[in-house]
């Protein structure tokens, strides 16, 4: 059993997946597989969808699947910034087009300037309604 361990943190935007000490970490980098032992030189790379294998100090192994992301290595800290889903340029592009289309559909009549007067009247009305309701409640008490 090795004396030296490194700290591994696997986080995604939605939650922390794993955090703890490990003897060695294996990941699938964009240029190939990587094995990281304690004291590794600082490194940063993108990850391909694949497994992150963590060798724990008690000789057990934990395996996590990540759908891509980034790996940051500092001598005794390894951070995996995992993506929550597989990402590719064309998927992103498709999502962007969909968001745009939805906006265009929404503004079929295409009014591109904000009617501030109308907006403030509308919002003032909403606020007045809420205030009136509160006043009414106080009066009832």
């Amino acid at each position: 059993m090795a004396e030296v361990t490194l700290r591994i943190e696997i986080v995604s935007a939605e939650r922390e997946i794993f955090s703890g000490q490990a003897e060695m970490v294996f990941v699938t980098g964009i240029l190939g597989d990587l094995g990281i032992a304690p004291g590794h030189a600082p490194l940063i790379t993108a990850l391909k969808p694949g497994n992150v294998r963590v060798q724990l100090p008690d000789q057990k192994e934990e395996i996590f699947y990540v759908s891509g992301g980034m790996l940051e290595v500092q001598p005794y800290i390894v951070t995996v910034l995992a993506d929550t889903a597989e990402r590719a340029a064309d998927i992103d592009e498709a999502a962007a087009i969909e968001a745009k289309e939805r906006a265009e559909k929404m503004l079929a009549e295409k009014v591109s300037t904000v009617d501030f007067a109308k907006a403030s009247v509308e919002l003032a009305e909403a606020v007045a309604q809420i205030q009136a309701a509160q006043k009414l409640k106080k009066r009832l008490k």
Binding site: A96, A99, K100, R102, A103, M106, L107, V111, S112, T113, V114, D115, F116, K118, A119, E122
Partner: peptide, 12 residues
């Protein structure tokens, strides 16, 4: 809201 009052919406 912005449907009623207008505005340049690029994504939604």
């Amino acid at each position: 809201f912005f449907k009623r009052i207008g505005g340049s919406v690029v994504a939604q």
